[in-house]
């Protein structure tokens, strides 16, 4: 990254606090569009704010003992559980989220705006609140959970399934929003063309719309997966923190920080690596958008 830098030196003679507007000039021949200091300084501060913690993580990483830490059974257990649950939560989100996105994008019904707002709510809701809400719904005494328990003997809280549910609750809105946006951008007349060829609405969706919006679905799925992988608040509230059963990586990191900070750093590095990999995978889609 390059930043316009004042090449004229430190310019100590500039009138400090004077009435003249001070500007940092870009390098020679750069068009003379300067970046005003009141914007440049906070911008650099913001950049540092985001990057320094990541650098600190790398600097303080126990590189020597890292191989031992990462190959320990606890780490693998947590990592495997995290990957399995995040993938399962993404799968759940795809199966029920894509049709929901289609409904929001293609079917006019009263209160559609309200429904869309409700779908978006988990995006801004504190995850802990999401976890409490899930307990109220699916907990042993929850409005649905009670019935699940009495009729089928199914209990969801504090199980691995509970982890998947908590992650899907938090992650699915990302998928729905992403897929709905792609659907709105896709030309609905392809579905009309399919209809004139004898395709039912479902066939048109399956054979025409779905392939056309596949890139949007993939992007939404990656986003949801990354969100599910990092999910903490709803998971610990709804599923608890049992190693091997509900203790995912973020929970393990938090727990390790209290007893074994080196292990916490090592676990964090793994999650950082996964995040970087996800970002690299999405590079072509979003990072070139600017």
């Amino acid at each position: 990254m390059t930043f316009p830098v004042d090449k004229s030196g430190a310019a100590p003679d500039t009138l400090r606090g004077g009435p003249r507007r001070r500007r940092v000039r870009t390098g020679e021949g750069a068009g003379g569009r300067g970046v005003p200091l009141p914007l440049l300084v906070p911008a650099l501060l913001g950049l540092a704010f985001l990057i320094v913690p990541l650098i600190a993580l790398l600097v303080r990483a126990p590189w020597r003992s890292l191989p031992d830490l990462l190959t320990s059974a606890e780490v693998w257990q947590a990592l495997r559980l995290s990957l399995v649950c995040a993938t399962a939560a993404t799968a759940v989100s795809l199966v029920i989220g894509v049709p929901l996105a289609w409904l929001l994008a293609r079917v006019e019904f009263p209160g559609r705006g309200l429904v869309r707002a409700l779908v978006t709510l988990p995006l801004v809701l504190p995850p802990v609140v999401g976890g409490v809400a899930l307990l109220m719904a699916l907990g042993r005494n929850g409005i649905v959970g009670k019935w699940l328990d009495s009729s089928f003997g199914v209990t969801l809280p504090f199980t691995t399934t509970g982890v998947v549910i908590a992650e899907a609750f938090v992650a699915m809105p990302f998928l729905v929003i992403s897929v709905e946006g792609t659907l709105r951008a896709a030309d609905p007349r392809y579905e009309e063309a399919a209809a004139t060829l004898g395709a039912s609405r479902f066939t048109a969706f399956r054979r025409v719309t779905l392939p056309l919006i596949a890139p949007g679905i993939a992007a939404g799925a990656v986003l949801a997966w990354a969100r599910a992988l990092g999910e903490f608040g709803a998971t610990i509230t709804f599923a608890g923190n049992f190693p091997g059963r509900t203790q995912t990586m973020p929970l393990a990191v938090y727990l390790a920080l209290q007893s074994d900070p080196e292990a916490a750093i090592a676990l964090s590095l793994v999650l950082l690596a996964v995040s970087v990999a996800v970002l690299a995978g999405l590079r072509d889609r979003w990072m070139t958008a600017g």
Binding site: Y190, E192, A193, A195, A199, R207
Partner: peptide
């Protein structure tokens, strides 16, 4: 989808992810 009607659209609306053959086979398949 149940009308015995065929339409040639102004900008054709050929399904971009299907070959010419599968575009034409789409109707008989349905």
């Amino acid at each position: 989808e149940s009308r015995p009607v065929g339409v040639v659209f102004q900008d054709y609306l050929l399904f971009p992810h299907l070959t010419a053959l599968d575009n034409v086979a789409f109707g008989p398949r349905c």
